[in-house]
Design a protein around this nucleic acid. Structure first.
Length: 607
RNA sequence: GAUCUCGUAGCUCAAUGGAUAGAGCAACUGCCUUCUAAGCAGUAGGUUGCAGGUUCGACCCCUGCCGGGGUCACCA
């Protein structure tokens, strides 16, 4: 039982013996005492006064007396207004540290026998990944790690949107203007090459739209220009050709399929290189080309059970007005399925492949409505996975100029940004000149660790639900509340441990646990912080928020920074204290390495 | 128009309904004490968009208003 649980127990029995009333355990919320007050844990007694029929001060005092007398670990207490500050013996914190150090898997909760699937990334194969994908991938990868630490069996998946009109646009443009160019012949990464042709399509198509609009205007001068543009956009020769290409793709035309496969392979090679840089991985990849037809069976099922209905034109709908939503189209009149229908099919497939309790979809908040409908419909269909669906809806990454728009060339490319981060990391590191003995491979590895540390922390420290701002004019910081700062703390700790080892210092439990009885405030604060780590890991899973873990790691690093400056380790004359401080450093290193691991950041030994 | 969401220091972000709303950046000041200054400490900076309400207690919950964004497509 943790100290906190012990105290809560004591409070419960205290309330019942002193005041003769019973309260549910859940109503007792203990919080860490604020720094400016004496004490370790604080109980807010206001909620209790109705039951105790005493003033807040009196209630707190009586409860404090009881705890002091009956709960061994409680040393003393003080009461300020309705706040009961409980003080524990320093000895207890020393013991806490000792047991924490001994837990090899501190921060990992026991296996819970449950499964969770985390889907993220979901790229289109017609253009390279951008900053928004970085947030998505880092969130998804981190959530997978967090769920794992919470005892889940995790399957990381990716759904590739590898078919559809947008892919045909790239393919068509390549056919027309490509002249047999390949990633090898051009030296352009495959995903970028495909993206270039997507842009080329758009450029040509715009010209054709303009021509068409002029023709239309000549024919009907009084018509609304916007309407004409809309009509033209659907009817340019290029667009019509792309549509016929999509039909040929669906019919399995060998020529089209060959081009499709060739270009997609280029794109996948490009994506893989990007994922490699990002440090994210997947256990299973779903391709939309394999799954896009699966939803139709579900439409039949819904019709048979009268959950869906057919309109006179043959299209199929579900009426969700009773649930506060609209009528939603599920199948077009021509019998082809729409996006959400495909998602039903995919959801079934996922569950068949990996029967899971939870299924997390890391998808932007612009799809909130889509997922509301998805979950509602599969619930109505009685799918066992319906309740476990969680849409990790994250906010867009915006630029000072607003949303990123590929058409306006304001997209921040993922590869470019990561390369830029590598470059800055190198520049800063070389300036500081601390790793001159590294060989070039070691140095490059470190630069990348730092670059990704800065970038991932930057994107993950913000509450995922909120939109965030990225200013390309200002480089991502390496100082202050940053990933690099936390990495730096780890490197300093590593230096401490290297020296302790070199000096053959012993810092086992026996060296300090029953010897050290007084702690400096910075030491106690640090131990207390480290002791709540497993709760933070749990909270991060409950809230689906890597930010919880990221900001915790920063808090720990800050506390260590103060400790590091205020107290000397190797100049400390008392050997027990010296051992304690090394052990404290070791534990801090372990915790921040674990926490940063949960957000996908590696921690260097030196920097 | 309907609906969801956000609004906290100059900027970027924190704060299970709890004590005097905290960090970082930017500005200013001090500190290389033989453990890494990518650091530590300090100064300054706030009517938490506005107005009500609930509560012993509200940045947090409720109502209204103002402002930004998303969604409401036979796109995915």
């Amino acid at each position: 039982m943790s100290s906190e649980q012990t105290i809560v127990q004591g409070i419960l029995t205290g309330i019942s013996t002193v005041f003769g009333v019973e309260v549910p355990a859940a109503s007792i919320a203990l919080q860490p005492t604020k720094k400016e007050f004496a004490g370790d844990f604080t109980l807010v007694v206001f909620p209790l006064v109705k039951l105790t029929k005493k003033s807040p001060e009196e209630t707190a005092r009586l409860l404090g007396e009881y705890l002091k007398q009956h709960v061994k670990i409680v040393d003393s207490f003080n009461v300020i207004k309705g706040f009961l500050n409980i003080e524990l013996s320093a000895q207890l914190w020393v013991q806490t540290l000792a047991s924490l150090v001994e837990q090899a898997d501190y921060g990992n909760l026991p296996a819970n026998g449950k499964r969770v699937m985390v889907e993220y990334s979901s790229p289109n194969t017609n253009k390279p990944l951008h900053l928004g994908h970085l947030r998505n991938n880092f969130l998804g990868y981190s959530m997978a790690k967090i769920m794992e630490a919470n005892g889940y069996q995790v399957l990381k998946t990716q759904v590739v949107n590898d078919r559809g009109i947008h892919i045909c646009k790239s393919m068509l443009a390549y056919q027309k203007f490509g002249q047999g160019e390949t990633p090898a012949s051009s030296g352009i990464k495959g995903d970028h090459l495909a993206g270039d042709y997507y842009v080329a399509f758009d450029r040509e198509n715009k010209k054709q739209i303009a021509t068409l609009v002029t023709e239309y205007q000549a024919a009907e001068p009084s018509a609304d220009v916007e309407k004409l543009k809309e009509k033209a956009a659907k009817n340019t020769p290029l667009m019509l050709e792309a549509q016929s290409m999509l039909l040929r793709w669906e019919e399995g035309d060998p020529e089209v399929l060959h081009l499709w496969q060739t270009m997609n392979q280029w794109v996948y090679a490009g994506f893989n290189a990007t994922y490699e840089q990002m440090g994210v991985t997947f256990d299973k990849i779903y391709y939309e080309s394999d799954t896009y037809l699966l939803g139709k069976k579900i439409v039949d099922e819904g019709l048979a059970r009268a959950l869906f209905f057919r309109k006179p034109d043959g299209s199929v709908w579900i009426d969700l007005t009773a649930d506060g939503l609209d009528q939603k189209l599920l199948l077009r009149a021509d019998g082809t399925s729409v996006y959400i229908t495909q998602d039903f099919g995919l959801a079934d497939t996922k569950y068949a492949d990996f029967p899971m309790e939870k299924s997390v979809y890391v998808v932007g908040n612009e799809q909130d409505y889509h997922f509301k409908v998805l979950q509602l419909v599969v619930e109505k269909l009685g799918r066992p996975y319906a309740k476990g669906i969680y849409h990790l809806s994250y906010g867009m990454v915006e630029l000072p100029t607003g949303k990123m728009k590929s058409r306006e060339g304001t997209v921040v490319d993922a590869d470019d940004l990561m390369a830029e981060m590598d470059r800055i990391a190198r520049e800063r590191t070389v300036e500081l000149g601390k790793i001159e003995d590294f060989d070039s491979a070691e140095a490059l590895y470190l630069y990348h660790q730092l670059a990704m540390g800065a970038l991932k922390y930057y994107l993950l420290r913000v509450d995922p639900k909120k939109k965030m701002l990225f200013n390309p004019e200002e480089s991502i910081d390496f100082q202050g509340d940053t990933g690099v700062y936390i990495q730096y703390t780890h490197a300093r700790i590593s230096a401490i441990l290297r020296r302790a080892t070199a000096e053959q210092m012993s810092f086992d439990r026996a060296d300090y646990a029953n010897v050290v009885s007084q702690l400096a405030p910075v030491e106690q604060e640090l131990v207390q912080l480290l002791s709540v780590y497993p709760k933070k890991v749990q909270l991060a899973a409950e809230e689906f928020s890597p930010a919880t873990v990221a900001s915790f790691a920063y808090e720990v690093a800050r506390a260590y920074g103060r400790f590091f400056y205020e107290l000397s380790i190797f100049n400390e004359p008392d050997p027990a204290r010296r051992s304690f401080r090394v052990a404290l450093s070791l534990a801090t290193g372990k915790v921040i390495r674990h926490a940063m691991g949960l957000i996908g950041v590696e921690m260097p030994e030196r920097m």
